[in-house]
């Protein structure tokens, strides 16, 4: 089966356990949201998949091929990372040229078209780009590489609202015309929620959630009202977090919507992804 498979991958940096026995499968033609707080292990995981760093133990497979030090496996994926690995003195159009050298299916016309849409000057050198345009240029290369797996690590870093909106639009366009697997690691959960199909939440190096966005959101709900009434209602339920303000309380609950009658003084609402994420990763 075509997929990226991560098997029991662990990675430690000095005293910090960045990843612990991570097992995951990124299937074909899906958009994944890889969510986690700062230092949760998202970038470490992507860097291991892309052969940039080595895992202490475990294996990664791309379409059944071992990913580590394997040109064939690596030619199937492209990782756009926060860190710029292109020579600073290289011009953007030279980056396009050299990417085509390594990825023969790189679509130069599409890259130039995207550069025009984002207003990126391809005559500029990599070091001359602002943080936002540096992200844009790397997004363009990643989307144009023509690989079946595109890994985007914080792609909207430094992008203004208009460019972020354009990025999501371009991503959906690309996905609908040329389906591929996209792994989107981001902090901007609300924005990404409209794009991703599956969610992987990573906390302190461990995968705590891995399911479809819809299924994940349907598993939780929020109940709010007077503190005493909320406390009565949530007794025996799986609470992932609470907020209190004055005499009012909001509880975030994992589980199916209650079948019993909701007391009139309580308000029930669905969890949004960001709230769910915050509660899951704070607890």
């Amino acid at each position: 089966m075509n997929c990226i498979e991560v098997k029991n991958v662990s990675k430690r940096f000095a005293e910090t356990e960045a990843l612990s026995q991570v097992c995951l499968r990124f299937e074909e033609n899906k958009i994944y949201g890889l969510l986690g707080r700062n230092g949760a292990g998202k970038s470490t995981l992507l860097n291991i998949i892309a052969n940039r760093i080595f895992a202490d133990s475990g294996q990664v497979f791309v379409n059944g091929m071992p990913a580590i030090e394997n040109d064939r496996a690596q030619s199937l994926l492209y990782l756009m990372s926060e860190q710029t690995l292109y020579p600073e003195k290289m011009k953007i159009r030279e980056v396009f040229k050299w990417t085509q050298n390594f990825y023969p299916s790189f679509d130069l016309a599409y890259a130039q078209n995207l550069a025009a849409r984002f207003g990126l000057d391809t005559k500029k050198k990599v070091k001359a780009l602002s943080t936002g345009y540096s992200s844009i240029f790397k997004i363009i290369v990643a989307l144009s590489a023509g690989t079946p797996y595109i890994l985007l690590d914080e792609p909207v870093l430094g992008l203004d609202a208009a460019h972020r909106e354009l990025f999501y639009k371009v991503l959906i366009e690309k996905y609908s015309t040329d389906p591929c697997t996209v792994i989107l690691s981001t902090h901007l959960i609300e924005e990404a929620a409209g794009v991703v199909e599956d969610i992987v939440i990573i906390k302190e190096g461990k995968i705590i959630q891995n399911q479809s966005c819809e299924a994940l959101l349907s598993k939780g709900y929020t109940i709010s009202g007077k503190a005493a009434a909320v406390d009565d209602f949530i007794r025996g339920k799986e609470i992932i977090g609470t907020d209190s303000l004055g005499g009012l309380k909001t509880a975030y609950i994992l589980g199916a919507l209650p079948e019993e009658e909701i007391p009139g003084d309580l308000e029930l609402s669905r969890l949004d992804l960001q709230k769910l994420f915050v509660q899951l990763t704070n607890s």
Partner: peptide
Amino acid sequence: ENFLLSVQNGISRKT
């Protein structure tokens, strides 16, 4: 520079 560019483009260290 060559190492970083290679890694960015899926080229193994052996290659």
